[in-house]
């Protein structure tokens, strides 16, 4: 496998050079990964290295395995075969505490934006700090700054059910980055928002990438990918027929 921003191998073919990747330590690494559910194999022979600071889109039809791929990226699933390494450590050798610690380095934004409905937005955003043993109050200034950055200052005390789709997506993004993770994984982050809001979210993600974060966005919204074309150097990966492929030329 070739170290790269995005090194792919499909049917023995290495796509890294074609992708023109930068050299660097990989934050997440897949090696001939396969994953099966009871219904059959969903992913097969997936090899990939994500370098720090890279930006990726992950596309594919519904049910192709995008969410499964992302779950493998943050240790929520263990591959059926092959190996997934998070920050250099094989998930199969990691215990639950190791996985939990690794997740503090990976911010995840889900399409359905899971929140704790009995906590206010501010408390939800501070949850990663709380569970990691940090005093959220000490980080209150950071929290306010973060809420300002995603435009939710006025909604700090709102409860999650009171938030609109766009607000929930921005809140999920804020929660994902409050621990200043190295990697941000977003699963259909614009699935429930209008075009304007999706552009706003994309801008926030691009800003994070410029701060050095590794970004991967799973989406079937080709408009979003095109919109990113002029703003960031990104790779587009596609899951098709259980395999991971490099889709088209670099953006």
């Amino acid at each position: 496998m070739i170290e790269s921003t995005c090194a792919l191998r499909h049917n023995g073919e290495t796509l890294a050079e074609k992708a023109g990747n930068r050299k660097g330590r990989s934050v997440i690494e897949f090696e001939t990964v396969a994953h099966s559910y009871s219904g059959g194999e969903l992913l097969s022979d997936v090899s990939l290295r994500l370098a720090p600071g890279s930006f990726h889109f992950l596309t594919g039809p519904s049910g192709s395995g995008k969410t499964t791929f992302l779950k493998l990226c943050y240790g929520a699933l263990v591959p059926t075969s092959g190996s997934v390494r998070l920050f250099g450590e094989d998930v199969r050798t990691m215990n639950r505490d190791d996985i939990a610690l690794a997740r503090r380095r990976v911010g995840v934004v889900h399409q359905d934006c899971q929140f704790l409905d009995h906590l206010s937005l501010r408390e939800n955003l501070a949850l990663p700090l709380t569970v990691s043993g940090q005093e959220a109050l000490d980080d209150d200034a950071n929290l306010k700054e973060l809420m300002g950055w995603v435009g939710l200052t006025a909604r700090a005390e709102a409860m999650p059910p009171e938030l609109s789709g766009g607000e929930r997506q921005r809140a999920a993004l804020a929660r994902a980055i409050i621990m200043s993770p190295e990697v941000i994984l977003a699963d259909e982050p614009t699935g429930n928002v209008d075009w304007e809001m999706s552009q706003r979210l994309l801008t926030l993600l691009i800003e994070l990438n410029r701060m050095g974060k590794t970004i991967m966005i799973a989406t079937h919204d080709l408009g979003l990918i095109r919109a990113a074309k002029n703003q960031v150097q990104a790779r587009v990966l596609r899951i098709s027929g259980r395999r991971l492929q490099l889709a088209g030329a670099d953006l």
């Binding site: 929520a76 639950r96 505490d97 939990a100 997740r103 889900h110 704790l116 949850l127 990663p128 569970v131």
Partner: peptide, 16 residues
């Protein structure tokens, strides 16, 4: 279960 899923998602240890 949903609360547990969210807490795990944000990095909570099972012991926590």
């Amino acid at each position: 279960a949903q609360v547990i899923a969210v807490m795990r998602l944000v990095g909570a240890r099972d012991s926590y």
